[in-house]
């Protein structure tokens, strides 16, 4: 599997298909036991600021205010910048993600959607060219989920140079709506059962997309692949 620079790749799979493990390997949080994993030609041996991660559970530090949670990331990314300037920059990231009212608050005071916005702000503040997102919107209600998907696309499309994003999800529509490319993991963990291009124009319009034929075709193709995989596993069992 090769992920080119600047791509937005959706990693789709059922629970237990190893998509989170794959993401943790890419982040350097888990060690590779066999096979090869490289980043810009160099083997991944541990975490790096080059690869930001947003987890499915809200992993902001609850004892730091939202702005301090962002500031700590900037402090690591740009150690020479003075604290006052770092705080200003942190506030800017939060404003960009629509969190101007949450700057001085603590994560426990925020809704799930706002916390996840702050988590994305922190990942952006790290300045990593690669973002690894592990079901970041999995715990959100449909409205917030759609909003944050659009926000993510907006942030990604505006950034120059474009960040590379690996987006892990088990939601087929989300995977298609966001990705340039769809990698489907099978139920025997760690096996790629499909690698499909998403032939949809950008910027994507949620409403017109819902009626588009290419979306329907793709969705059916993915569903058929997943079904076949499940049947094979049942046969094997």
């Amino acid at each position: 599997m090769h992920i080119p620079e600047g791509a937005l790749v959706s990693l789709l799979g059922a629970r237990g298909s190893g998509k989170t493990t794959l993401l943790r390997l890419a982040a350097g949080l888990n060690a590779v036991s066999s096979g090869r994993l490289t980043w810009n030609g160099v083997a991944v041996v541990g975490p790096s600021l080059q690869r930001g991660v947003v987890f499915q559970d809200y992993a902001l530090f609850p004892w730091l205010s939202v702005v301090d949670n962002i500031e700590i990331a900037i402090a690591k990314a740009k150690p020479t910048v003075r604290k006052a300037e770092r705080l200003v920059e942190a506030g800017q990231y939060l404003r960009d993600l629509g969190l101007e009212t949450a700057i001085g608050k603590y994560p426990g005071e925020l809704s799930g959607g706002m916390r996840q916005r702050a988590a994305i702000a922190r990942a952006l503040a790290l300045g990593s060219p690669l973002l690894l997102l592990d079901e970041p919107f999995g715990a959100l209600d449909p409205v917030n989920r759609a909003r944050l998907q659009d926000l993510l696309l907006e942030v990604w499309e505006l950034a120059r140079p474009r960040k590379t994003i690996v987006f892990v999800t088990h939601d087929v529509d989300e995977a298609i709506y966001l990705g340039d490319r769809l990698i489907v993991l099978g139920s025997s963990p760690g096996r790629v059962i499909a690698d499909l291009a998403v032939p949809l124009e950008r910027p994507r319009e949620r409403r017109s997309l819902l009626d588009s034929h290419s979306l329907h075709g793709l969705r059916e193709q993915v569903a058929a692949t997943l079904l076949e995989d499940t049947l094979q596993r049942l046969k094997a069992a």
Partner: peptide, 25 residues
């Protein structure tokens, strides 16, 4: 685990990890 992962992703030094993550937690 998620706070430990977070600290590793941020690349905190051992002292920063103790002071800003382990101690408050």
């Amino acid at each position: 685990q998620r706070y430990r992962d977070n600290a590793r992703i941020l690349g905190l030094t051992r002292f920063e990890y103790q002071r800003r993550v382990v101690f408050p937690a």
